[in-house]
Nucleic acid binder design. Structure first.
Lengths: 253, 253
DNA sequence: GCTTGACCTTTACGTCGCGTCAAGGTTTAT
DNA sequence: ATAAACCTTGACGCGACGTAAAGGTCAAGC
């Protein structure tokens, strides 16, 4: 349970230089130093290094990390929970970047244009995240405070609003579909309302809408079992077919 | 469609300094310079900046980025596909970090000890790789999600011609399956033909084929009831199992 | 016991991707 | 006409190490 620099470094995936640097800046001191001057680390230091790496992974600078885990009121459990939230947030940000890649790919393959604004969606979200971290630096004693979350929401502002709109659109489509399948006519008023909801939903992803493309996607919903399974699962058997028929009628006008 | 430093910077979420630096190191030159010495950027530069940011997001250093996108054989589509793979990989790595947080939390609450090795799982890429070799649930999530995301991206940009080919492939798989179940041997000639059809079908959605991934998807077909239900519905009871066995034999060669 | 090679030490300078002044010139709006 | 908001080119600073230099230590094998 005691390690030299290289042993601990190999264990944690960091270099010896890094550990020496952490010693130098008083972030992680060895448990004791051998007669020959070797740094020796014990279980307490291992735990501390783990915590350091948790924060480092989130992009927190080393000075702040030290202040955080040396703070008298530092609650490991609370910090871990907060960590989990941030990791989840980063996952969501990755999804945004993936969306960007996919939209760019679609534009490339479809030969369609892409708006300059769309090109950078997902990148800007990263700024929001960084802002949050800076704010977190100033208000570190108030972690988990309601005020913190509120200002967070403010900073996110537009995009979160849009995101919420997108989510509510998805939900409305699924719910309306579930209610309509087997009762309403896809070409009727309710079917057309759903098709229009779906158009608005699509417009979140496409730089420009066309009926042909809309129809193409609708056909795909019944042709590709992955999508069929999704809609049928979410809104009941026959939902994918209903949506396709509704969009087909919608696209004919 | 022409921007000054600040305008482009605001659009892309980078600072003016950054754009000036990119000019300085010949990574992103303005389209032209105004009489007063102002840098002016056009649509080509916007596209290039987007590509730069894609790579930067993955942690590629600027020198390498320049070499990459200036390389004569640079294929934007290929780069985007690889890019998407990297992002998905990062998402999976985030899952590992989340696992680590969860395990640490569990150990904390349960009052149980945690091995030093476990403490650093997720931080080390090598360990990540080792762990990802495991199959089962983990593989299902991994390949299942990848397939879904990919199909999302690709199908949206599919040409009519390609789309028709995809549809006919799907149909042939279902029909052949329906005829083969209970009569043919999954490991026999017909089973292998079907497995190969399925491989071709998969290649519509995946940037690169691998036997492991193919097998992972096959396992998913019997493990996930949604897919089982789909195949059994379309091609008769036992179709999903037949397809899985056929692919298992196919992947062993 | 001696050598070898893999470890360890400190000191010190280099790197990357910018942030941040400083000291000016330009454009736009009122 | 004047202020505000942009733009320019230097030049220095910084965080988190990498990397070399010059040397000390330790376990293993001959």
């Amino acid at each position: 349970m005691e390690y030299t620099v290289k042993q601990l470094g190999d264990l944690a995936g960091v270099s010896g230089r890094t550990l020496r640097y952490y010693d130098q800046i008083d972030l992680l001191k060895p448990a004791w130093v051998s007669a020959a001057g070797y740094r020796m680390y014990g279980p307490k230091e291992v735990k501390r290094l783990q915590q350091i790496l948790f924060f480092r992974e989130l992009g927190v600078d080393l000075e702040t990390i030290r202040e955080l885990i040396d703070a008298p009121g530092f609650d490991e459990k609370q910090a871990l929970l907060r960590h989990r939230e941030r990791l989840l947030e980063r996952k969501r940000q990755l999804d945004l970047l993936l969306e960007n890649v996919e939209r760019t790919l679609a534009a490339l393959e479809g030969g369609t244009a892409m708006s300059d604004k769309d090109r950078f969606m997902g990148f800007k979200e990263k700024l929001v995240r960084e802002n949050e971290e800076k704010y977190g630096q100033e208000a570190r004693e108030r972690w988990g405070d309601a005020a913190f979350d509120a200002s967070n929401a403010k900073v996110l502002g537009l995009t979160e609003e849009k995101y919420a709109e997108l989510e509510s659109l998805s939900r409305e489509i699924i719910e309306s579909l579930a209610a309509a399948v087997g009762k309403e006519d896809p070409a009727g008023a309710e079917g057309q309302r759903i098709a229009d909801l779906h158009r608005r939903w699509l417009c979140f992803f496409w730089p420009e809408y066309s009926k042909e493309a809309h129809l193409g996607v609708a056909e795909m919903y019944v042709a590709d079992e992955r999508f069929t399974a999704y809609y049928d699962n979410q809104a009941g058997q026959g939902a994918a077919q209903f949506l396709r028929d509704a969009i087909a009628a919608y696209a004919k006008n």
